[in-house]
Design a protein around this nucleic acid. Structure first.
Ligand code: MN
Ligand code: MN
Ligand code: ZN
Ligand code: ZN
Lengths: 154, 154
DNA sequence: GCCCGTATTGCAACGAGTTGCAATAGCATC
DNA sequence: GATGCTATTGCAACTCGTTGCAATACGGGC
């Protein structure tokens, strides 16, 4: 593992404090806790999930603070969220690439729609309407191939 | 107004009772209230909205009953729902045609994506993944042309 | 190292749903 | 028109957030 590419973005969680202060925002104990939790998380997580994980680190954690901080971090581009089929928020932690979601409402599996695959979809809407799609917030429900075969009607 | 086309689907709200019973379900006072409210509603409505309107008719209305009945009616295809940007449910009452939604998160306006416009989008996903999109549940956020011009960065 | 403006927090109350359960009431059958 | 099965209701408690407000505590400036 010696030949790791040098220009890969570093973890970068340490820059968060700086970026907050640069905007006149503050680096508090509560934010340190949440950012610590996020640094140890990958993939998609629920807001409630994050509250719970913060509480594991600091039992005095309050939900409103966590949700408010998530809003701030989303402004900074550090997290993104989309919504599950029930509308609940799901956060992506430092998504490698911008992506949308495809979810089967029968087997509940989720697939990511990468930027390449999304390109034509996004371009079509852009062309027809001048509307810029927020890809990371996109969550498409339906039925996957396997489930459709399993129960054509139902 | 004499020359109304004859084959237009009739209001059809009266069939609801029959369709419920055909499935072994029941036609209750509470369901009569909700269906009455729906018959007098068009476009998109929130669940909470519907609870409120039912209460105007029958003050003893209970939220859980309304939401449970909406689920049943959705099974019957009488209503459909999608989600607002905040994830809250929004119902379409007897949508004329299956359609998706485009919503600008700056001006909060909503546009419908008709079946024709959606066709290519849906077909692309179907072709690439074998995934069948639930168009009426689709809600795409982003920024409309006007808002993008108004504040290119922001 | 202290001051002070203001960003942030915690609390409490609220809003939108959801769920388990015991009581009620459709409705199909006789 | 009465009976019985079971779908449905209402209640209460719970989940996931959101919001207003007074108290707290960052952190830039001195
Ligand atoms: Mn939904
Ligand atoms: Mn959202
Ligand atoms: Zn599936
Ligand atoms: Zn707009």
């Amino acid at each position: 593992m010696g030949a790791r590419s040098m220009d890969e973005a570093p973890a970068g969680w340490d820059e968060v404090a700086t970026r907050l202060r640069a905007r006149g925002l503050r680096w508090t104990a509560q934010r340190r806790t949440l950012v610590g939790v996020l640094a140890g998380t990958s993939g998609h997580v629920t807001g409630a999930d994050l509250v719970e994980r913060c509480r594991a680190v600091d039992p005095t954690t309050t939900p409103s603070t966590v949700y408010r901080t998530l809003d701030v971090l989303e402004d900074l581009g550090i997290v993104r969220h989309a919504h599950g089929a029930d509308g609940r928020e799901e956060f992506h932690v430092r998504p490698a690439a911008d992506h949308g979601h495809l979810r089967c409402d029968r087997c509940l599996q989720v697939w990511e729609i990468g930027p390449d695959e999304a390109r034509s979809l996004v371009a079509a809407i852009e062309a027809a309407r001048g509307f810029t799609v927020d890809l990371s917030h996109l969550s498409i429900s339906g039925r996957c191939a396997a489930c459709r075969e399993a129960s054509p009607r139902g």
